[in-house]
Amino acid sequence: MYQTNYHRASSVQEAVQMMGAATEGKYLSGGMTLIPTMRQRLAAPSDLIDLRHIAEMKGIAVNGRSVRIGAATTHEEVATSAELRTVCPALCGLAGHIGDPAVRHMGTIGGSIANNDPAADYPAAMLALDAVIVTDRREIKAGDFFTGLFETALEDGEIITAVRFDAPAKAAYQKFANPASRYAMAGVFVAKRDNGDVRVAVTGAGSSGVFRHPDLEAALSANWSPDAVANVTVDGSDMLSDLHASAAYRANLVKVMTKRAVSAT
């Protein structure tokens, strides 16, 4: 790891100030991706501003079907939230399968979303749930937030403080994990609303990160059943291809995971 300067913020305002004073600063939430990346000398922020002790960024609030999750809420807290489970168990299930228990104790929803790793789980959920990403200065719809591999709409110094969404009528997440990294090789979050609106968001497979699949959405809007997926063609040409899985295989996994996610609802 290169030299860096650690700062601990106690409020969002203080964090923003600290970031303003830094030359090449980075916010540090759970650090479960950032610290290993720095350890491998693949990132070299001059300053780290620790958000883990900001009380206003923590906690899960469920009001009817409206959900608000503080950005510094850990995966473990999301996975085990009884309140959230009553309205959106799919998100609890997703959080409970991110990394391993020790990672879930530190990693946060805000950190995951801000990093937008193309194989991370949360971005698929945000997109499928039509979530709003709340920052210190504005609200951004998930559809506008994820802009490419490790790229988001966040501006310099902008902090995600929370995410909010209305829980859909039905939702599920299925992922096929990379046998080595255990990140998603294809992860599909499906969500159906009472008005018939269906969203299918895919992570781990797309060559430019998380994406929605209009054809799968159309087919499932018409018929919310696993069988509806069978006749949809999932094109592999925009899929990632690497040592572990070709684009064609990922395309197959997207279809299979979609089918299984629908079955699970």
Binding site: Y6, L28, A102, H105
Partner: peptide
């Protein structure tokens, strides 16, 4: 809680 001490700064 269990954590991975290789992925946390002492300062954290």
């Amino acid at each position: 809680q269990s954590v991975k001490s290789c992925s946390i700064l002492a300062a954290q």
